[in-house]
């Protein structure tokens, strides 16, 4: 699932604001296709943000997060930090992206 993420991180007054968009179907497992078959649940369960090996923020998601999820959070950091954002879904897929804080 490489290339599933777009991430921006910008520092101001010691606070880094991270904004991320992830391409993912986020299927609830409650919907049916045209033939009446249930579409299996397929959703991101966890997104972690690490800086220098330290976890600064973790998101646990259920099926109630919208398709192609957007996530924004803030942490105390600095310009030049290398921030890694990584997700895993309930079917074992994953992706990770490292960005430099601007």
């Amino acid at each position: 699932m490489a290339g599933s993420m777009r991430v921006r991180a910008k520092e101001k007054d010691g606070v880094v604001t991270v904004k991320a968009l992830i391409t993912h179907p986020m299927e609830t497992g409650l919907r049916k296709d045209g033939d009446g078959n249930v579409i299996p649940a397929h959703f991101i369960q966890e997104v972690t943000a690490t800086v220098g090996g330290e976890v600064v923020f973790t998101a646990n998601w259920g099926t109630g997060v919208a398709k192609n999820p957007y996530l924004s959070f803030k942490y105390k950091g600095s310009k030049g930090d290398l921030l890694t954002l990584a997700w895993t879904d309930n079917q074992g897929h994953s992706d990770a992206l490292e960005v430099e804080v601007k």
Partner: peptide, 18 residues
């Protein structure tokens, strides 16, 4: 969704829900 914060976090989160 539920978000685990750390001492480095600023208590803010934004997302889109169904």
């Amino acid at each position: 969704s539920t978000y685990d914060l750390t001492p480095d976090s600023v208590p803010y989160v934004s997302t889109r829900v169904k």
